[in-house]
Each structure stands twice: as C-alpha cells, then as structure tokens.
Simulated scan of single mutants.
Amino acid sequence: MTGPVVKTGDLFVFYGLLKQGATGMPADLPLETSGRFLGPCRFRGRLLDLGGFPGVVDGEDLCHGVRYELADVSIIGAMDEFEDVTDDPATSLYLRKQIPLLGDDGAATGEQAWIYWYNQPTEGFEHIADGNWPLGKGRTRK
C-alpha cells in the first residue's frame, strides 16, 4: 500500500475491532507492543454496522473512538492489510486518512489522527445512532 506516510508518534483513532479489548481484534496484530492506547476521544462521522464489524463514513454524528499512539511504523502494513486497504481506491474496503479529534463536547482538541474510513457502498447497513461500537459485538473478519 502506498499513500500518506505514517510516522512514529502519529495518533490513530480506533472505533471498532482495533479498540483495546474488542471481540474480533486480530490476534496477530501486535498493537500492545507497537504503540500505546491513550484513552477515549470523539470524532465526526456516521457509524455503520457492516455485519459484525463497523465502518464510519461522512456524517455529523459525534462518534466514539480510542486514541492510539504509534511507536513502531512497521505494523502499518499489517494494519492496512487487516482493514483491506489497497492501492486502488475503487476496490479498497477502507481508506486510511487523517481527521481532527474532538472532546466529549464536540470541540476540537487540536489533535489529528489517522482513521480507517469505510470506502464502499453503504446501502442496507444499520446506522449506529449513538456512534459507539460495543466491544463485544465484533467478529473476526479474517
């Protein structure tokens, strides 16, 4: 996968299967040793249930996420592979992009974070109105 360069110390926001303690988190992705979880955050989007895993698309809901600080950039290839990020935006399940992080009140914190943004048609998928994917709702995708 080519694209924007991720650097050591960059933040990610995880909102689904990559959240710490989430059911369906890939066992072979060493998040605990490749960075550190920093706690909750919010961001704007529209959270969807894609059938055992979530996706977020453009929207104005105040969604829940978890901040993660990357320490080892060598994990990015495995993260992108798990999220089905490809070099072709037309077929990529998710795109990795940067968004502003928000506090519980919806105000900008001044932080930017990478996020895996859903990139396929959304018709027929349930909208999760509270913007919060439950830790126990996931299933392993791969």
Rank of each mutant, 00 (worst) to 15 (best):
L48M: 00
F53G: 03
W114G: 08
G106C: 14
D88S: 06
L38G: 02
A107T: 12
Q112H: 15
D130F: 12
D49T: 00
K97C: 07
L38W: 03
G51Y: 00
R139W: 02
A107K: 04
F43A: 02
K97Y: 01
D104F: 07
G52N: 07
V85C: 14
N119T: 09
A113H: 12
V73P: 06
D84G: 03
G124Q: 08
L62Q: 09
I115G: 04
V66A: 14
L47N: 07
L18H: 05
T23A: 15
V6M: 04
G51N: 03
S34F: 08
L38D: 11
P40D: 15
P134L: 07
G103S: 09
Y68F: 11
D58W: 02
P40C: 06
I115H: 06
L47V: 11
G21E: 09
L18K: 05
G65S: 13
D130P: 11
K19N: 09
L18N: 15
Y118L: 05
E123A: 08
T33C: 10
G35E: 12
D88R: 03
F43H: 03
D58T: 13
G103N: 10
F82A: 10
S92T: 09
Y15F: 15
G52I: 04
W133Q: 06
A107D: 05
G21K: 11
E126V: 02
E81D: 08
H64V: 12
R96T: 12
G55F: 00
A107H: 01
L18R: 02
F82R: 07
G77K: 11
A71C: 01
R67K: 13
W133K: 05
T140C: 07
I128R: 01
D61E: 13
G9L: 05
F37Q: 06
M79V: 15
L29Q: 07
Y118R: 03
P134H: 11
F53P: 08
A71V: 04
G39W: 08
G16P: 07
N132A: 08
V57K: 01
G131M: 09
G136H: 13
W117S: 00
T122D: 06
V5H: 15
R96N: 04
M1S: 15
P54Y: 00
V57I: 13
E69F: 01
G9P: 12
L17Y: 03
A22K: 10
I99L: 14
R46C: 11
P100K: 10
L11Y: 14
D88K: 06
P30G: 11
Y94T: 03
V85S: 09
S34G: 06
M79K: 05
F43V: 03
F53C: 02
L29G: 04
K137L: 12
I75G: 01
I75S: 02
L95D: 00
P89M: 14
G131F: 02
W133N: 02
G131C: 05
Q120P: 02
I75E: 06
G55W: 00
I99D: 04
L95G: 01
P30I: 12
N132W: 10
G103V: 10
S34Y: 11
V57N: 08
K19A: 12
G110M: 14
